[in-house]
Design a protein around this nucleic acid. Structure first.
Lengths: 204, 204
DNA sequence: CAAGTCATGTAACGCGTTACATGATTGG
DNA sequence: CCAATCATGTAACGCGTTACATGACTTG
């Protein structure tokens, strides 16, 4: 359900082709909600059938024709409905924490490598989120520019403020994941030993 | 793939029926990896076919027969393999951050209510994670007791340490979600205004 | 002339969610 | 006697992941 809203969100800024969108999912919005091509193309088709978006074929001789998607009034309505709907919270489901809880079963080397992977991943994310935040503040993001161009100037501050706030949250999350995994590395060293043996009750 | 490992993890402590497991998923492990009954029962059956677990029918006159699941050596192997395998990190996909990024589209009231929901949810999670952490430290968790009973005493410290570390991460996460949403509430008040109008490019 | 990027997908599969089904026993 | 708890599931549906397919044009 959220891919749909991520797509609508993007299209509220300006009309785009599925290809453009999929590039954006590889960057900007993709840093908040990622989706691969294989989800984007069919989802846009379905949204077209539902009347949330409209496509215009832009023929360009030789090349395959592009389809430019534009949000409809109904799409805007649906998007607004989603944003105002009560947010539902799912119960926790974190693979990394699950793994961490049973680290006594791991080889010290592999445990260390996995913590390092965790740190590397979030350092990467952190860099991108910080770059994105900076691009919002100095208005160098093209999506933001298009969005601001299509909305009244008295709204500009709010629009930017909420996006910066979003990235602030993600940046904080990245930092705390990094700090956590660094403590994890220390703990692994402290506890370095053979992994636990199989429990007595296991059966061959 | 992780439900399977969460189940194996639980069964390394002691044999359990699907019903017991599903209770645990509503509490202890469920605070790290949640799953409903409708996933647990069929998954255990599949794992039985794969030879990762073995079931013993415990007939009790009158009542429906319980099936007690016990991890097999192959199950232990599979679990160890998972814990040592390189952790794969998915790209970000956070509904709440997605929503936050487009809060200029929301009604102030609804935006506020959703932030309050976010805070309430994580306060609840925080309380449970803190309780869980305390239960580990004072050894009052029954699953932990069973696990420690089935493993050599020199391992006990490690076993507890990794679990405490896990909950520390979750507790930190909950705190930062709460702090973020509290800043969100302030921002919503500061920015209180009519939601943005529909963009000029939308089509009826 | 090869690699990359433009442009659009399909197909298969597993995971997760929600709702529903069934029936016995135990406790207030 | 009614609600909760014990005990086990099925069915339908949508979301997400991975891998693959196709073909033209552009840049080094």
């Amino acid at each position: 359900m959220s891919l749909r809203n991520a797509l609508l969100a993007l299209l509220t800024a300006r009309p785009l082709t599925a290809y453009d969108i999929s590039k954006q999912f590889g960057a900007s919005v993709g840093y908040v909600w990622f989706a691969p091509d294989s989800q984007i193309y069919p989802q846009l088709r379905r949204m077209e059938e539902e009347g949330l978006v409209e496509a215009t074929e832009l023929p360009s001789e030789g090349r395959r024709t592009k389809r430019e998607y534009r949000i409809t009034d109904e799409g805007v309505r649906a998007f607004r409905e989603w944003i105002n709907a009560p947010a539902s919270h799912q119960r926790e489901r974190s693979v990394h924490h699950l793994r961490a809880a049973y680290l006594e079963w791991a080889e010290t080397d592999e445990a260390r490598r996995n913590m390092e992977r965790h740190i590397a991943f979030y350092r990467e994310q952190l860099a991108q989120w910080e770059a994105q935040r900076a691009a919002l503040l100095d208005r160098s993001s093209p999506t933001l520019a298009a969005r601001l161009a299509g909305s009244p100037p008295e709204q500009h501050e709010r629009i930017v403020a909420f996006k910066v706030f979003t990235y602030d949250g993600l940046i904080e999350r990245a930092r705390s994941e990094i700090a956590w995994a660094e403590r994890g590395l220390e703990l692994i060293e402290e506890m370095a030993a053979e992994p636990t043996p199989a429990p007595v009750h296991a059966r061959a």
